[in-house]
Simulated assay, not measured.
Amino acid sequence: MADSQHDRFLQAATTHVPACDRALGRTLRYGVSTSWCRLFQAAPGPENVFRTAMKKKRIDPWRTGHCLKDPVSADYNQASYPEVV
């Protein structure tokens, strides 16, 4: 993903909610980014490039307050837990 794609991903798939008490974590955030790519026909990049971009943007995967937004969260959940859907 190019940097502009990282910005679009953050804007489209996440929101800052101070009351959100769960951290997304590194693996989850990258998994959600691949769901975003699938939904918006973007080519996902390697995980290390994604993590570097998030670090440059000072996005801490272990900090709470970032929540997922639909439709990306729904796509990620459906892909991750197909037996529940």
Rank of each mutant, 00 (worst) to 15 (best):
D75R: 10
A12L: 13
V32S: 02
N48C: 08
T15M: 15
L10D: 01
R38H: 12
R8C: 11
V49I: 09
T27Y: 06
D70W: 04
A53T: 00
W62P: 00
S35L: 06
F9G: 07
H66A: 05
T15G: 12
I59H: 04
P44V: 09
A74R: 09
D75E: 15
F40Q: 04
P18Y: 10
K69H: 05
P46N: 07
R8P: 00
M1P: 02
L28C: 12
R29Y: 04
H66S: 09
S4Q: 14
P18A: 15
K57Q: 08
V85E: 05
R29H: 02
D60T: 08
A2Q: 12
L10P: 01
H6C: 13
Q41G: 06
D7W: 06
D70S: 13
V49G: 03
F40M: 03
L68E: 05
K69Q: 15
A12C: 13
S80H: 07
E47R: 15
S35W: 02
Q11I: 14
S80T: 14
P61I: 07
V32Y: 01
K69P: 02
C20D: 12
L39E: 04
P44D: 02
L10K: 10
Q11P: 02
F50E: 00
R22L: 12
T27E: 13
F9K: 09
N48G: 03
A42Q: 14
W36S: 03
A23S: 15
T52M: 03
R51M: 10
R63T: 04
K57D: 01
Y30P: 01
G45I: 03
T34I: 12
F50M: 00
L24G: 02
F9W: 12
A23C: 10
P61A: 04
V49C: 02
G65C: 04
T64M: 07
L68W: 07
Q11T: 15
N48S: 14
A19L: 13
A23F: 08
R58A: 06
T15K: 15
L28A: 09
D75Y: 04
V49W: 01
P46G: 10
D70Q: 13
D60V: 08
E83Y: 05
K56A: 10
E47H: 10
D7N: 12
A2K: 14
A53P: 00
A53Y: 01
E83A: 09
F9P: 08
D3F: 11
G31E: 07
R26G: 11
T27K: 14
T64D: 01
M54E: 07
D70F: 03
Q78W: 06
T15F: 13
T14A: 14
Q41L: 11
V17M: 13
T34E: 09
L24N: 02
R22F: 12
A19F: 11
V49Y: 01
G65T: 06
M1G: 08
H16C: 10
R38A: 15
W62V: 00
S80Y: 03
N77V: 06
G31P: 07
H16Y: 15
W62L: 09
T14I: 14
P46Y: 04
A42L: 06
